[in-house]
């Protein structure tokens, strides 16, 4: 097995452009997904079952199918409702919608974890529903929302690779392009994998810096610990 860095140096601009597209459309899809998740979560939390039903259905259906299928459905289905959109637009929207159903579940869980009466205490001092959400509810949601949202954001970055299948010129598409021209899969995929790895780890690091969580483990006997804990250098209690 040989590794020829010249291939990467020659084709670096293509991969770099793909990387930039991946970063931008992932970021856009994460924001879009979170925004779309808010009404979905609100519906899922509604008291009336007829309001909960559409949200539950959307969540179950989108979660039940591969992202690839969702992407193709929108790719071929959206033109029913309007002009054919560029693949990048359809792809980003699909990724955002895919993220939205996961974000919605996270938001719902965070809302359910709130102490009781918070919305009501905001209303009791004369805040409107919206003001109560903004000043009382939302600030309390953030700490519980951040870690699971980071996981979903990472998932979306990785799923964005699937957009290559509808010719969105992101990183994986660029990698396949270079691979098709050079027939050097080792170099191309090592570089591509590294770029994805860097991106998803950068996100994780930024998030843990935002909220330092201490993994507390149950104290265990030394003997049992030999079997119940993993890794010599893992987090120690």
């Amino acid at each position: 097995m040989s590794f020829d860095p010249a291939i990467l140096i020659d084709n670096w601009p293509v991969l770099a452009r793909g990387f930039a597209v991946t970063v931008m459309l992932s970021a856009l899809a994460i924001v879009l997904g979170f925004v779309m998740a808010i009404p979905i979560a609100a519906l899922k939390l509604a008291r009336h079952p007829m309001l909960r039903l559409p949200a539950a259905l959307l969540i179950e259906v989108v979660r039940g199918m591969p992202f690839l299928v969702l992407l193709y459905l929108l790719h071929f289905g959206l033109p029913f409702f309007g002009p054919r959109l560029p693949a990048t637009v359809t792809g980003t929207f699909a990724l955002g919608l895919f993220g939205a159903v996961y974000f919605a579940e996270v938001i719902r869980a965070a809302v359910l974890a709130l102490p009781r009466g918070q919305m009501e205490s905001g209303r009791a001092v004369g805040m409107t529903r919206l003001q109560s959400v903004r000043h009382i509810i939302a600030p309390q949601l953030v700490p519980g929302l951040l870690p699971p949202s980071t996981n979903i954001a990472q998932m979306l970055i990785k799923e964005s690779a699937v957009l290559s299948s509808i010719t969105v010129p992101e990183l994986t598409y660029s990698a396949l392009l270079v691979q098709g021209q050079t027939f050097s899969p080792v170099e191309v995929f090592v570089a591509t994998g590294t770029l994805y790895w860097v991106l998803s780890h950068a996100l994780a690091t930024a998030s843990t810096r935002g909220s330092r969580r201490h993994a507390r483990r149950r104290p265990q006997g030394r003997i049992a610990d030999r079997f119940l804990s993993l890794d010599a250098f893992g987090p120690r209690p």
Partner: peptide, 13 residues
């Protein structure tokens, strides 16, 4: 003004 039995203070402030 309403003072709740469970107070419902705002824990984040």
């Amino acid at each position: 003004g309403f003072v709740f039995q469970q107070l419902h203070l705002w824990p984040h402030l």
